[in-house]
């Protein structure tokens, strides 16, 4: 097992502990997006606790903000804050580790959680970078259910119009949302065609939970000049936990003790 994959599974174990303790969270999406977050923060982006206050460093936005449970574990792992504190207090009374990204948490750029905002924020960050002649890149992670929000298409249009090759979006295409499959709820059909129509470079990653494939896609994105890139990561919701995979009821399901033990056992089996 390569180091990134190992890291992603260790973080899965952290996430399960965090959401089980809190009795809340969005565990299904956390497990589908964790490989993307692991790759971006550990291999692709230049964002560290040391450079976070600087202007010319990469920028990251979790537009599907309800999966902040996963982001907390990634940021805690990188030393932005005490990961154990986040696990112990996630969504608890008076905790700063609330259920959506907020700037009280070191490493989080801007408040989010209302869907359909991250891409436009990323467009603004990318335009600012071009204005300042800075070479940073802006990364935005979106959910596929979130792509029903119309504001995304205004942002896609602007990113294409301004040829923002310093902007890279990722769609965590796990095919499920709270009420059912995205095809049932509101079909986004071929998202790649939509992005392409607005002038984007489109990269599909057929196994969006494969860290090596994701790394390759982000390197290709960085090499693409003159247009923004979207990485469409075909992921599995609940990835890594047998009874959660591709099951919509785990969008924000709460585990029993027995289920928690089973989930941890599933992850440990991969890690061993």
């Amino acid at each position: 097992m390569d180091a990134l994959t190992r890291k992603a599974y260790e973080l899965r174990r952290d996430i399960l502990e965090e959401v089980y303790k809190s009795g809340s969270g969005h565990v299904g999406g956390d497990l589908s997006v964790i490989d993307i977050l692991t790759v971006l923060y550990n291999e692709i982006m230049d964002i560290t606790p040391e450079n976070f206050g600087e202007r010319n460093r990469d920028h990251f936005l979790l537009s599907k903000g309800h999966c902040v449970d996963a982001l907390y574990m990634v940021l805690g792992d990188l030393g932005f804050f005490d990961k154990q504190e986040a696990k112990d207090t996630f969504s608890a009374y008076d905790s700063k580790f609330i259920g959506h990204p907020n700037t009280d948490i070191p490493g989080i750029e801007i408040n989010s959680g209302s869907l359909g905002h991250g891409l436009a924020l990323g467009v603004g960050m990318a335009i600012a970078g071009k204005m300042d002649g800075m070479d940073y890149r802006t990364y935005v992670v979106l959910g596929d259910g979130e792509m029903a929000e119309g504001s995304n298409y205004e942002a896609m249009m602007a990113a294409g119009h301004y040829h923002l090759d310093n902007l890279c979006a990722t769609v965590d295409l796990n095919g499920l949302q709270i009420s059912g499959t995205t095809d049932q709820v509101m079909s986004t059909a071929d998202l790649g065609e939509k992005f392409a129509a607005f002038g984007w470079n489109v990269i599909h990653v057929e196994d969006g939970n494969n860290c090596a494939h994701l790394v390759e896609a982000y390197h290709k994105a960085e090499a693409c000049k003159g247009k923004p890139t979207v990485v469409i990561a075909h992921t599995v919701k609940g990835k890594g936990v047998s009874f959660m995979e591709n099951n919509k009821s785990w969008h924000h399901g709460v585990m029993t003790e027995e289920q928690y033990k089973q989930a941890i056992a599933d992850i440990e089996e991969v890690l061993s």
Binding site: I110, A120, A155, A158
Partner: peptide, 18 residues
């Protein structure tokens, strides 16, 4: 362009970068 929602969020993104 004629996209007021985008206008405001993109402006906020720029502001977040100084």
């Amino acid at each position: 362009g004629i996209a007021e929602q985008n206008l405001v969020t993109v402006s906020a993104g720029m502001a977040a970068c100084g």
